[in-house]
Write a protein that binds this DNA or RNA. Structure first.
Lengths: 203, 203, 203, 203
DNA sequence: TATGAATGAGTATTCATTCAT
DNA sequence: GATGAATGAATACTCATTCAT
């Protein structure tokens, strides 16, 4: 019993090691440019060994994206669930969490939202967890609409525009992290959210 | 003399043919998945021939990005140069042109701004033409600031936030074109620009 | 003692299970296309386990062929040993049994007589059991020669020709089972044996 | 013109070299055990080079079988077409040619008729050239039936039995060439054909 | 200018087998 | 006795690139 458990744990550890190495490589060189050999070298195993833990390269990607998606949802849900003085503040916290996820986990963010590798896996996006994040956003926008706080009434329209806005900031910060003389990050994010939310609330 | 000129013209024509084929393939299948052979097949030349016109695969990419950047700048500059009743309208036209470039030339937009393949070429972005577009944007924002129309005074900060906003919309529309139930595109873009500009102008 | 015996019995059972699985796979996919893993999967053991019972893949084949040969000899011997009104009828029964073995055990027949995998094992055929079958055939031909029933007197020559004839029918029926519009099998075999035996008996 | 022609010739020469090497290897080690590497080594080219001349391994096999089949048909047709004193002699010549093809081209015979690799190519056998050989055989049997020379009237039945008989001899001679103490080959073949034909002609 | 021929290095993946437990 | 972990060598095949013509 104890032995089996230990073995499972070890197995899971190596799986995680592989995932971690793959994530880093996928992000550094792009999914297509990462070979099983490279992953193997990084963890100092033989390429064959990887096939004990994963059926093929795609399965690594799938697992990786699943993990990333779960992590992403955790960020968003926690932010929306946290106590907040009012709906607007809560919405702001959700948007902030979205950006924060991207900055904390740029590898995952890039693979999930920028490179959109999930499409590569031919898993329809519509039913998957990334959209749960969007659904949550729309829900909270709807709440504000109900409270009569918004100029525009179409929560889908608002949601899409907001998503665009925060995705834009997040992805630029990730993509051009070292290639562009950004303002101080915290200031930029605060300003971005201020104007974004300011414009959509009825004055 | 005339012969040399003709030769040059023909050479240039074939180069353009190669670029065009490569662009389409890069976008359809991703840079890493496009082989010289595939490009050659598309233009019905032998793979070897391409090496007469380009030193290697990377040079095709470089040329392609140069071309894309020129096209991009053309969009932006024309928009900012066009007669407009006031500075805000002119700024709006510029932002609209940015998005329009992305929608008209998703291949170039993706390679340039989303995949950021220029970084792959180890050409620093800071000195290149893409930043000229950003500079233009900042210039026009500065104009509005000078006219006292803005709440915020830091034109770099505003510029970065605006870029993020329109980049977000453009890249989402490109990346999830068929994976997401977008509102009607024109409506979404109009709303997005309205709120973006509305929030930054002093009321 | 009882324990050892039981262990031996169990060991033998698993060996037989492996042989059985391998036989089926070898015939379905060809010796070269069958991996230890596939055999293991079929019997729901780990690949490693097979190595407890067999030194390597070749040993499985060897054992399998030994088993097949024993089975083959059993068919032939029983047929020749069965009571029969006369030598010719007995010979016919032997030939029929040969064909029947092929049809009942196409896997074994193919591995033994068509693919001749024994040669692959570098065990000379001359000393082995397959030739016992041939020897039996020749013996019964000699009997008929002694009885003055044959035109030709060289029992080796007759034996080889007869073997060829029934091997040809058997192997074609196996190899082209589904690729050729055969006459009704029973009719074809009867006709084949009739003409084969008719021609060699003195009229 | 001359240059193109020469190039074509050279191309064809290398193709033939590859085919020849492959044929020998396929026969010596079995199709599944022959790798592109092995073929390449045999002709002292790099494995890559083979892919200039053939799309893949299967195409080599296909070409090889096409070639073998053409050769086979040539043997059979010539034999049946040659002037002969009577139908029975002509039939005998055809059967002899079949055996002779096998002995002259054991590699082809094995791949075509024993290993039945054509089935592997998923080309239905029914419509292909091997069956043309069988059709020719049946035709000539029908002729003899028409002349009232046969006991049995079903030319398909006779044809199948005859094919079995000569295939058996041919394949045994090939398969056990060095593993069995054959009678003198010429004598054996003559005896085999004598009894085969003798039995089917009405006395 | 254009290309056929050629290849070394690389791709994902599978194999038979060994070893420690 | 049974197996999970591990691997070196092999598989078919593709790639960017060079060279001779």
């Amino acid at each position: 019993m104890g032995s089996t458990e230990r073995r499972n744990r070890e197995t899971e550890e190596i799986r995680q090691k592989i995932i971690a190495a793959a994530t880093q490589l996928f992000i550094e060189e792009g999914y297509a440019n990462v070979s099983m050999r490279k992953i193997a070298q990084k963890i100092e195993y033989s390429p064959t060994t990887i096939y004990i833990y994963f059926q093929n390269k795609e399965e690594i990607l799938r697992e990786l994206l699943d993990h990333g998606t779960a992590l992403f949802l955790d960020y968003i849900q926690k932010a929306f669930a946290a106590p907040a003085p009012d709906s607007l503040t809560r919405l702001r916290a959700g948007l902030k969490a979205y950006i924060q996820f991207g900055l904390d986990q740029p590898a995952f963010y890039r693979l999930m939202f920028i490179d959109n590798l999930e499409a590569f896996l031919q898993k329809a996006m519509c039913g998957n967890d990334r959209l749960q994040g969007f659904a949550l956003l729309v829900e909270h926008i709807a709440e504000l609409i109900d409270q009569g706080q918004c100029r525009e009434q179409d929560e889908q329209l608002i949601g899409q525009s907001m998503w665009a806005s925060i995705h834009g900031l997040t992805s630029l910060l990730i993509t051009y992290e070292h290639h562009f003389p950004w303002n101080e990050q915290e200031v930029l994010i605060r300003y971005h959210l201020d104007t974004l939310l300011g414009s959509f609330v009825r004055k």
